[in-house]
């Protein structure tokens, strides 16, 4: 069988882009190999660990079980897209550093993107709700508590509240 290629047009981190992909590529493959988005990690590649998480039209997806050709017309956000124009860290990235939520860092980009999706809802969540919302990620270094703290911290910051007031 002839190899099959297709042109895909989408928006990556705020910029309209297009490229020709092998139809066998996952979205992870395309983002890493054709756009250099190495924050998109390959952990399990079967949708279990969340290391490859990206936001597609503002919702978190495991890019390893998403065909690259399905990116057509979508808005895709990777960790690279969270940086400010001069490389400034976003509030959620800074919170991960401050709360020591990063150990080896392999799960971090995925967690941060899911955290970003959670925070963008502008809602106040309980710890149990946050745990459920973050449950699609595995951290082999098992730093879950600090990850939860980091997301929580930004949640309160953005809502202008303290945990006591909530």
């Amino acid at each position: 069988m002839e190899q099959q290629y297709k042109q895909v047009n989408f928006n990556l981190n705020g910029k309209d882009v297009s490229c020709v992909v092998d139809i066998r590529c996952s979205l992870t493959d395309m983002l890493r190999n054709q756009f250099g988005c190495t924050s998109v990690k390959k952990g399990c590649e079967v949708g279990e660990c969340g290391a490859c998480t990206v936001l597609i039209d503002k919702e978190a997806f495991n890019s390893c079980i998403y065909l690259a050709v399905w990116a057509e017309g979508k808005h895709i956000l990777t960790l690279e897209g969270l940086l400010g124009p001069n490389g400034e860290l976003s509030d959620i990235q800074q919170a991960f550093i401050d709360e020591a939520a990063v150990q080896c860092g392999f799960c971090t980009p995925g967690f941060i993107l899911t955290g970003y999706e959670i925070l963008e809802t502008g809602k106040l969540y309980t710890d149990d709700e946050l745990r459920k919302l973050l449950s699609g990620h595995l951290c082999r270094c098992t730093g879950y508590e600090n990850i939860l703290k980091a997301v929580k911290k930004v949640m309160y910051q953005r809502l202008g509240k303290t945990p006591e007031e909530a």
Binding site: G47, I56, E59, A60, F61, Y66, T114, L133, G136, H137
Partner: peptide, 9 residues
Amino acid sequence: VGGPQIRNI
């Protein structure tokens, strides 16, 4: 079902 990312796809 699964986790949040699985429920989106």
